[in-house]
Simulated scan of single mutants.
Amino acid sequence: MTRTQWVSIAAVVLALLFAGTAAVASSVSRDGGSEQSRTPSADSPDAGFARDMAVHHQQAVEMSFIVRDSTDDEDVRRLAYDIANTQANQRGMLLGWLDLWGLPKAEAAKEPMAWMMSVPMEGMDHGYEAHDGSLMPGMATKTELKQLREARGEKAEILYLQLMTDHHKGGVSMAQGCVRLCTVGAEKSLAEGMVAAQESEMKLMADLLKERGAAAR
C-alpha cells in the first residue's frame, strides 16, 4: 500500500469516526436529549457554519471531479476521490441538521462568515470580500475553476493541489470557529473531525506538490 493510500485512508477514517459520533449524538438529541431544548436559531453559529460549510464543501467536490477527469495519476485521483466522498457525506449531514432544526439552507440577507466575525482567528481574513465566485476564504474563483477545467496532466495536478490546499486552509479555519462557537455537541465533533482530516490531507498535498517541483501558493 502506498503512502498516499495510507494517508487518504487515515483521513477518511478520522472523518467518518467523527461523523459517526455526530450521528449518534444527533439521534440522542431527537430522542429527548439535552440538546433538544437548545435547537439553534437561524442566526446562530451552528446554523451559519452548517450553511457556509455546505457551500464550501460543494466546491471541493466539484474540483475533485474535475481533476479526476484531467489526469491519469493514481495518487491524485485517489486523493480527489477521498475528498469528494468525504465532503459530500459531510455536506449531507450539515444540510440534514438544518432540516432537523427547521432552518433555511440559505439566507440571502446573511453575508458568508457573519457567524464568526466576532472571533479572532489566526489566519482567517475577517475582512474577506466575495469576488469572482469566491464567496469565502479558500474558495477558488470562477477564473481558477476555468483554468482547472482546461488543464491536463501534471499541470492539472499541481493546480488542483494548490487550489485544494487553499480550500482546506479556509475550511480548517471555519471548522475551528465552529469548535469554539457552536453549541450542538454533534456539530462540534464533526468540525473537530474536519480539522484533523484536512490538516492530514494538507500534509499529503504538500508532499505531492514537492514531487512535482511545486509548492503551495
Rank of each mutant, 00 (worst) to 15 (best):
I66V: 13
K169D: 09
E74I: 09
M121V: 12
E211L: 06
K188L: 07
D132Y: 06
K142D: 02
M116C: 12
Q59K: 00
S41R: 11
M63C: 04
L16Q: 15
M164E: 02
L14C: 11
M116Q: 08
A11L: 05
H131E: 11
G20N: 03
E107Q: 15
E154L: 01
A106M: 10
M136E: 15
L204P: 02
R180M: 12
G153H: 06
M194V: 13
A216T: 09
S173Q: 14
S26P: 08
A108S: 13
A80P: 03
R68G: 13
R78K: 13
V7P: 05
M53F: 06
S70Q: 15
A47S: 12
E122C: 00
Q198I: 04
G33I: 14
W6G: 03
T2K: 15
L204W: 01
L17W: 11
L98K: 12
A216P: 07
D52N: 14
A186E: 09
V179Y: 00
L94C: 13
S189T: 02
V13A: 13
E199C: 08
S8A: 11
S29M: 06
G20M: 11
D75W: 00
G127N: 10
A175I: 08
P45F: 15
T165W: 01
R78P: 05
I83W: 02
A22H: 07
R3D: 10
R78D: 14
A23G: 10
L159P: 07
K142A: 03
R152V: 08
N89Y: 05
K105F: 03
V55F: 08
L161C: 07
V172A: 14
M202V: 10
S134P: 02
K142C: 01
R152S: 15
C178L: 09
V184M: 10
T86H: 09
M1V: 15
S29N: 10
T2F: 09
R38P: 00
L16F: 10
G92P: 02
P45M: 03
D125C: 01
D69H: 04
A80Q: 02
L208W: 00
V67W: 00
M164N: 04
G127K: 08
W6P: 00
Y81E: 06
E35G: 08
V7D: 08
Q147L: 11
L163K: 01
S44R: 03
A130L: 04
M174K: 04
S189C: 05
P45E: 11
A54G: 09
D46T: 06
D99C: 08
I83D: 02
Y128V: 08
R77V: 01
M121N: 01
D43P: 07
S44Q: 07
L98E: 08
S134M: 13
D43F: 10
M124Q: 03
E157V: 04
I83T: 03
R78F: 06
S70E: 10
S37D: 12
R38C: 03
G32R: 13
K203G: 14
G102I: 07
L100H: 14
R51A: 15
H167R: 02
L148G: 02
V184K: 03
L161D: 05
T39F: 05
V76Q: 05
M124A: 02
A50M: 10
G102V: 06
A140M: 07
H56P: 05
A109H: 06
G170H: 01
I158N: 04
T86P: 04
Q162H: 06
A216S: 13
Q59V: 04
W101R: 05
A216G: 03
G20V: 08
E150N: 10
